[in-house]
Design a protein around this nucleic acid. Sequence first.
DNA 1: TGATGCATGTAATCCGTTACATGATTCA
DNA 2: TGAATCATGTAACGGATTACATGCATCA
Lengths: 178, 178
Amino acid sequence: MHVKILCLGVLTLGEASGYEIKKEIEEGVFTHFIEASFGSIYPALTQLHADGLVTVRAQEQTGRPDKKVYALTGAGRQALTKALSVLPAKDKFKSEFLFQMLMSDYLKPDMLLAAIDRQLAHLREDLTGIEECQCAEMPLSGARFVADYGRAVLTASVSYLEQKRAELSSPSHPQAAE
Amino acid sequence: MHVKILCLGVLTLGEASGYEIKKEIEEGVFTHFIEASFGSIYPALTQLHADGLVTVRAQEQTGRPDKKVYALTGAGRQALTKALSVLPAKDKFKSEFLFQMLMSDYLKPDMLLAAIDRQLAHLREDLTGIEECQCAEMPLSGARFVADYGRAVLTASVSYLEQKRAELSSPSHPQAAE
DNA sequence: TGATGCATGTAATCCGTTACATGATTCA
DNA sequence: TGAATCATGTAACGGATTACATGCATCA
């Protein structure tokens, strides 16, 4: 998905600078299923402005660099709606972790547990991230839907991994349980 | 992750042509968490050969174009092991679907249900895909681990969406249930 | 006759990340 | 003093997808 549409989406929450948009994407509800770097956000914002989909306002700040605060225009809202009127592409999920698990025959034994523990740590981080971002406070009714979806999926992953991890590290049955 | 390593991984299952590797990635256990196109596989294979990590053998076929069958070398196995000795990068998950759900305020009402139904269809397809690929037949002990992981996550997603979908389309409480 | 599957490969193109450049303030 | 936060922006680079080129066989 285009970073431009993403920016329009974030701006529906209220005006923001490029820096703030990045933060919102990194820490807000978007975190788990979208990524964007400054290198793509700033150019996107510039172009969005050129296309008349957002307005800019320079905001001076004491002690801090000046901000460029962007806000949606009517045309911007329309462009967003139009982009949302198409059925979304299929989710993309890429996991080096699962590749390693699949290839576990070629893995050093200690790496197996280490990789699982790392994965568990990541998943738990994401889970607490969802709890912390107060989705109820957001002006988007979809926020809870998304947060709950994330919670459901992450919880299932954690449960599965915890169970498998226990099996693997149990002293009695290191490999065969059948 | 590099397509080269991916090819090495697929080749641990046995020798194969570029075309067959692509099929394996599309239809096998890899499907759910890895993607690769011909445009990346063929050059990768060429380079892998140049690096001495695989061997090639031209196989004539009647009625079909000739194949180039690739097989792992000892150095190839070593390279794979080495690549697997590093902790994997964090999973990447990108979902236009969740973006649309988040932005549901700007969505036409019929699109909401349509998008959810599409998503459900995708998830169920993936699930049956997992059931069909006989992981037990694979010479990789990690195959079951991966398949079960996928099953756990996909099942959780489907359950959640089915529940939400029912709530949304219920005639009595179209929006407020509280 | 036309689509689909088998089979390989290259080139153009897109899109994004990483790194670089700059600079003030605050906190440890 | 050094790291982190705030703040914007560009350029190089990488990596993969898409489209193009080719060609035979089979099935509907």
